[in-house]
Amino acid sequence: MATAATLAITRPEPRTTASSWRVALAWIICTGLPLGLFGLLNLGGEAIGILPLFFAPFGLPGWVGAIAHLGQLALLGSAYWALTQRNTRSPARLWLIALMAGYVALPFITPPLDSLQLSLVCTGLFLASVATISRVGAVSPLAGWMMAPMLAVIGFSATMGLAIAAAYAPPFALMQAQQAPSAA
């Protein structure tokens, strides 16, 4: 059936300047929120004598690990912003908030742990990160890509920790028993 009615073609409305500023302000707030939370936790931890310990492999100084950790927190905040731009109320937001809380607290729970306990904590955080990135990436692929560097660093940390813990524990470690020298 043919019709003679004209087609109404509408062009997408350009974003207004106020809307662009609102989006930029939301990005700045979401990116800075985990950093501010870390700063507050650092202030409280320092007051009671707990200082954060950062993962810095290969003999790198601790400040390199601190910069990497803070950069990853900013990326997690940006991932939350990208997730909120989808305007969906999915459980992925709660997963991402819980992961951010765990990643903010990680340097403060690190000092009293031995290598095996720390590697188990990092492995648990890595598995939680994999679960979170699968949920977040399904809703917003951009947010999933923003979480990828954190996933790589925490995965490397967990792998190194498990390898070092396994190297010093039986049955993988070299056994050094006290034996009397042979009489020659």
Rank of each mutant, 00 (worst) to 15 (best):
I29G: 12
A68V: 15
I28C: 13
G59C: 06
A167L: 04
I9C: 09
A4E: 12
A148I: 08
S182T: 13
L120E: 05
F54M: 05
T84G: 01
A184E: 05
T132L: 02
F172Y: 14
E13M: 05
I29E: 11
L73R: 10
L51V: 14
W81Y: 14
S129W: 07
A152K: 04
W145G: 01
A183Q: 08
G32C: 05
A79I: 03
A4G: 10
L96F: 08
W145Q: 11
M146K: 07
F54A: 07
P149T: 06
L41P: 02
A143Y: 00
L116E: 07
A166Y: 04
M175K: 12
P12L: 09
I97S: 06
Q179T: 15
R93S: 10
S182W: 05
M100S: 12
L70P: 01
G32D: 07
E13I: 12
S20V: 12
W21C: 06
F156M: 09
L151C: 09
M150R: 12
T3F: 01
R89F: 01
P34E: 04
L7N: 04
M146S: 03
L99S: 01
A24W: 11
A79N: 07
L37C: 13
W145I: 08
S157E: 14
Q178Y: 04
A24D: 13
L142C: 03
I28D: 07
M150S: 14
P170Q: 09
L33Q: 12
S140M: 04
L35N: 10
Q178G: 01
L76A: 13
A2H: 14
T132A: 03
A82V: 03
T10R: 15
L51N: 13
S20P: 00
W95C: 03
L83W: 06
R89S: 11
N87I: 02
L142Y: 06
A92M: 05
L43T: 15
P57S: 08
I29W: 09
V139D: 13
M146C: 09
R86K: 15
A180D: 06
Y80N: 04
L162K: 05
V153N: 11
G77M: 04
L53T: 15
R89Y: 01
L37S: 15
I28M: 14
I67V: 15
A66P: 02
F172M: 13
A143S: 11
G144T: 03
G144Q: 02
F38V: 07
Y80W: 13
F172Q: 14
A5C: 02
F172V: 14
P170R: 10
A131D: 09
Y80Q: 04
I133A: 09
A173T: 14
G62K: 05
S134C: 09
G137I: 03
S20D: 13
A128G: 04
F172G: 07
L60K: 10
V130H: 01
Q117V: 06
R135Y: 00
Q178K: 08
T3W: 02
T10L: 11
G77N: 04
A82R: 11
A180S: 12
